[in-house]
Design a protein around this nucleic acid. Structure first.
Lengths: 132, 132
DNA sequence: GCCTAATCAGGTGTAAACAA
DNA sequence: TTGTTTACACCTGATTAGGC
């Protein structure tokens, strides 16, 4: 059989965490519980967001509203995603610039360069920068 | 196909040890049951999983949910199956690479090569093999 | 005994929360 | 808003144990 995945956003339900209910904005059932509900974006949603981000990293309200419709995500999730994305992108670009500044300059003391790069990698959150 | 969303929470709920317990030391819970329930996948379920795996070995939550519906298995089982499958595949591919590296060199002692590769797989850490 | 589903231990990426 | 931190979904690789 051909596996044909129809994109219906309301289907995704992992173990306990509430997923996008598509039409229910938010269900704060347990106010006493500090359990953070973490939205997991699927590939299609990510693609939509990334495409939009590439065109305009700082969409206005109207644009965000369209994204809400296209992705089935809540406006809040959209907003947070763009916030985080901008921040990560900025971090990465700064990091890259630093690396590029250090590498071509003094090759003679490459050992030291390695060390400094290592320190740099440790102090900043390198793992976050690595991921697209 | 019709999307039949099963609202039964038992399907999505994690049996006993839900998530990472975060703290493992003491297990004062459930000392009585040590019997692990092992799911036996039938041929149809396996075929579905394998077909999906061939198309995408790393399905997102949405795809997994579809598999849940198609197979009737729990999300947990789906997740574990893909994890194990990826791991096995990786092991096998590494094994094949090693065999191919060794074979053209000294064909005369091919029998011994097989043995040594076998030992390698059993003893070495995969991380080390990976880096090569 | 072999195969592999389930579990464990540790790690990674990032959405959400928080601070500035 | 940006920058930082936290919590959690989900991963890998190793191991354990159930069904055939």
């Amino acid at each position: 059989m051909g596996i044909l995945f129809l994109p219906s956003p309301s289907l995704t339900a992992e173990p306990i965490s509430a997923r996008q209910p598509a039409l229910r904005p938010h269900v704060h059932k347990q106010p006493e519980k500090t359990t953070r509900v973490r939205t997991v974006l699927n590939e299609k949603q990510l693609h939509t967001l990334r495409t939009c981000y590439a065109a305009n990293p700082r969409p206005d309200a109207l644009m965000k509203e369209q994204l809400v419709e296209m992705t089935g995500l809540s406006p809040r999730v959209i907003r947070v995603w763009f916030q985080n994305k901008r921040c990560k992108d900025k971090k990465r670009s700064i990091m890259m610039k630093q690396l590029q500044q250090q590498q071509p300059n003094d090759k003679t003391v490459s050992g030291f360069n390695f060390l400094s790069v290592g320190i740099c990698m440790c102090t900043a959150n390198w793992k976050e920068l690595n991921s697209a």
